[in-house]
Design a protein around this nucleic acid. Structure first.
Lengths: 206, 206
DNA sequence: GTCTATAATTCGATAGAC
DNA sequence: GTCTATCGAATTATAGAC
């Protein structure tokens, strides 16, 4: 890999940490280049602007998660003509956690960025509106087949709520009362099971 | 009320709107005074700094909500020696929503501020760490009496998740797929019922 | 208490040398 | 591609008149 590619990656890594910790508005490009060990002007050279840097960080993170989620969704086997609710939620929750936490050295910063990403003010959210959009529709379709008696609006806010809880759980790893106790595979699997159960019964409502 | 008190209130109202819409970092004091119709220098005269203004807004909002939640908690009647889970969650969820949405003219901005408040980066959260702290312990105590078979850590992350979902619901009022469709009492009551059900079954996990 | 005017920083972005 | 140096804009905070 050429030194330019290395520079871009160092900037993206440092930006991920900064945006995840301080949010978009409170992140300064000067702190990013200091952390990355590169020159200030290189951000604008490689990415154009602060907003485009943010979009690049989001895009790099979203791509593998969406691919994993859709792959899991397509593997669901219907039971009695319906996809099992628990399987749909598992396909939604597990790939994101697994991918984000796979590399233990990067897990915390990825989780924190992901948590912060969903909590930006609307003007910042508009910068990356369409990144995860392609994933919501197919999951909502499958949810409606799993629970036809609930409206799409009900399922939509519940799915949104699950993303929130999921993101919250990842952002709090290591803190005293966190759901995910450590980055070990056992703790992660246990947490996923709890999240899927919480979501399944919460959504089913019975 | 003297004109100084009017000025302070106008600043607090405008700050609530701005902080709720743009977050702490992206809110400029210039936009606040423009919205409030007062002079820029009066913010520092009355509140000292941007951070202290933010703390004042949070304190004004938190006080009545906490009082209402604790009052509702104390009214719970045990059934067979245990407080009913649904009653505990109702006492947690309903007072906040009712107080925030009571005044229809202020409901949207209050809800949005409340949603944004929970989603600020850690440096901003530190400014107001202790505001809602006194409310968590008594509710966790009551939850443990309601479901003794679950650990305090399990109940803690689930209660935290419910706050998140609640806050999310309030912050999205009026948007297309929102849980709370309007500020009418009927829509609010319906949403509270759905949230309580979602939380009850999600927490119970069966 | 309220205003005008401005000080003192800080930030994103860029020009131009290498 | 990478660097230094700096511009121009925007911000918080404040000094001083009224």
């Amino acid at each position: 890999m050429g030194s330019a590619a290395v520079t871009k990656q160092r900037i993206l890594d440092a930006a991920e940490r900064a945006f995840g910790t301080y949010g978009f508005a409170q992140t300064t490009l000067r702190s990013v280049v200091k952390d990355a060990g590169v020159n200030l002007a290189l951000i604008n050279y490689h990415f154009g602007s602060k907003e485009e840097l943010y979009q690049a960080v989001v895009a790099r993170m979203a791509k593998p998660i969406i691919e994993a989620q859709l792959a899991a969704l397509n593997k669901i086997e219907p039971v009695a003509g319906k996809p099992p609710l628990e399987a749909v939620l598992d396909a939604y929750i597990r790939p994101g956690i697994n991918h984000l936490l796979h590399d233990k050295k990067l897990a915390l910063e990825r989780a924190q960025f992901f948590a912060r990403y969903f909590m930006e003010p609307i003007p910042v959210q508009k910068l990356t509106d369409r990144e995860f959009e392609e994933c919501d529709a197919p999951f909502l379709d499958m949810l409606q087949r799993a629970i036809p008696e609930q409206s799409r609006i009900q399922l939509a806010w519940k799915l949104d709520a699950i993303v929130l809880v999921l993101v919250r759980a990842m952002g709090q790893i290591g803190q005293p009362h966190a759901l995910i106790k450590s980055y070990s595979k056992a703790d992660i699997d246990a947490a996923v099971a709890e999240l899927v159960a919480f979501s399944t019964y919460g959504i089913k409502g019975e």
